[in-house]
Computed example of a mutant assay.
Amino acid sequence: MKLTFLGTSSGTPTRHRNVSGLAVQTVLGADWFLVDCGEGTQHRLLQTPLSLHDMAAVCITHVHGDHCYGLPGLLASAGMGKRTKPLKLIAPLPVWQWFQATRELTDLHLPYEVEHVDVDAQPLVYEAPGLRIERHALRHRVPSHAYRVQVQTHRTRLKVEALKATGLPPGPLWRALQTGEDVRFNGDVLRSADFADMQTDTAVAVLGGDNAEPALLRDACEGAQLLVHEATYTQEVLDKVGPGPMHSSARLLAEFAQSAAVPNLILTHFSARHQNEEGLAALMAETQARYGGHAFLANDLDVYELDSTGQVTVTRA
């Protein structure tokens, strides 16, 4: 799985950070998925290799504008770029109603179908061979959701030592066994089932929207190798701000990730007051004091890759 951060600021954009947007790619094909689409997301996408023709679905976590105001413009640009492939819009019903009203009132005609998937209708919101996306409810001032993305791939591994014991040299017959064919060698039939094992690799990432209670994601994080979650404030600032905004601190998030044994954690959605060297250092220090896994602070246009072993690597913008 590959994650490209298109916006990592909370509420409003700043000089170096746009509001929320996250592109998700998998090894299953060219299709990719957009999680949230704050204003300006399409400008960030122009700085990546991603094509709007390959965008399979847009997943909106909640109705607040810093997570969805970029949606009509993005979909309009896709239409002007001659996109014809249908698109799924996975979102709360109010987002769909707002988008429909915007289409009507701005004379927006799209040359492709947009199918609404109501996140409240069922937990499984997207399914394709090897891919499942499920939504999980969060706690915010409006209904908010996280998306659990699971990617499964299958590969056949040869029992190399057993093959060497037969005397069969590496080559086309090895490849035939790996693809399920039985082969003849020295008068015997070597059965593929005896010399090849099917292995399933699973990668799971949980991508959260705005949320004041990280522990709500405990079930979603079962078996996950990566959690991406907002850390709008440090705990000190959150205590001063009070419960009204209903966001998480780095401390709350770190304590949950530690208790859930999630091995990798990416913090995002930072308040403008933390978007300097001192503020980001405070967020990381608060995280590392309570979390023993691999922690990262996302920047716009950072690219994170999660492999089948659960390892995360990052390419900085």
Rank of each mutant, 00 (worst) to 15 (best):
E113M: 14
Q152N: 09
K164V: 11
A257K: 04
A176R: 10
Q97D: 04
R44E: 05
A215W: 10
T156Q: 12
A285M: 06
E39P: 03
G242W: 09
F256S: 00
H229T: 00
L227V: 01
R141S: 08
Q275H: 15
H67D: 02
E230I: 14
W96N: 05
A215C: 14
A295M: 03
T179M: 15
T48A: 09
C221R: 06
P143M: 05
E222S: 14
L50S: 04
L87T: 03
L283N: 01
D188G: 07
P123K: 02
A205I: 11
H116N: 07
G244E: 08
P86H: 02
V151H: 03
H274Q: 05
L306Y: 05
H154T: 11
A231M: 02
P243M: 11
V125I: 14
E161W: 09
T84D: 09
G70P: 05
L46P: 04
V183I: 14
G310R: 06
T84I: 15
L71Y: 02
G223H: 06
D210P: 08
V206A: 15
L110M: 12
S144Y: 04
Q288L: 15
A231I: 02
A56F: 07
S271C: 07
H116T: 13
L89F: 02
T14G: 09
A260E: 01
K82D: 10
T61E: 04
V149E: 04
L22P: 00
L6M: 13
F5W: 08
V142L: 14
S77L: 12
L131W: 00
A261N: 13
L280W: 06
K88R: 06
V35T: 00
L252N: 01
C59G: 00
L105S: 12
M246Y: 11
W174V: 14
P49A: 14
E134R: 12
V27W: 14
R157E: 11
C68D: 04
L158E: 01
E115D: 07
A128W: 10
V119P: 00
L50H: 06
M246V: 10
L253N: 03
L238M: 06
H109L: 13
Y112A: 02
A137N: 01
A260N: 03
F195Y: 15
E115F: 05
L301T: 02
L52I: 09
E286N: 07
L163A: 00
V228A: 08
D118N: 13
V189T: 15
